[in-house]
Design a binder for these strands. Sequence first.
DNA 1: GCCCAGGTGGGTA
DNA 2: TACCCACATGGG
Length: 220
Amino acid sequence: MQRRLRDVFQRLLDHFGPLHWWPAETPFEVVVGAFLTQNTAWRNVEQAILGLKQASALTPDGLMNLSREKLEECIRPAGYFRQKAGRLHDFVAYLHLQHGGELQGLLSGPLDEVRRELLSLKGIGPETADSILLYAGHYPSFVIDAYTRRLFGRLGILQGDEDYESIRRLCMDSLTPDVELYNEFHALIVEECKSFCRKQKPLCPSCPLNSICPAAHSVD
DNA sequence: GCCCAGGTGGGTA
DNA sequence: TACCCACATGGG
């Protein structure tokens, strides 16, 4: 499996080049984006992020000082805006109370402990936790999302019924714990899916994984 | 009008 | 544990 995953990674990297994710200017913006992108297209999240930026609310203090009403207005384009507004406010309140309002206070200490702490918070499930750990905290925590499942499913690496933690374990047991590797791999998986997995259903001649894909992207 | 998008949490059997 | 459902907007 190690060689298999390495092969997939190398082919994607050769094709797309390094992507240097996450698309955000600060670690806190990564966190906000991770909440907002839950079951939501990234283009909608971008609008919400822009709204927050214009409201000077892309810092823990700025977000905490924003009224609930104004916060909901800013993030409305990202959907589930009432739920997400509540969870974002809860998060910054927790950060203030437990870590002096400093994200770096939360994102320090051993990976497993920080992950457990994140998972204990309302609105942070495994994918959001791993996105925050990897892209905001620079921890070697592999992110499993819908794209990862779709691509690995098509490549025959997954059956389709594996749960989140087992997929993450599979990846992390097969790859060296390398922040840059995990960062690029996940970014490349997203790029691959956006470029090929969806648009060219029957067959993708230009897809870098075409020759090693048993299903040849023929299934959904 | 319908389907989908970088999930999560609460409820029920 | 295993489903089912609510949560909401915007683009194809």
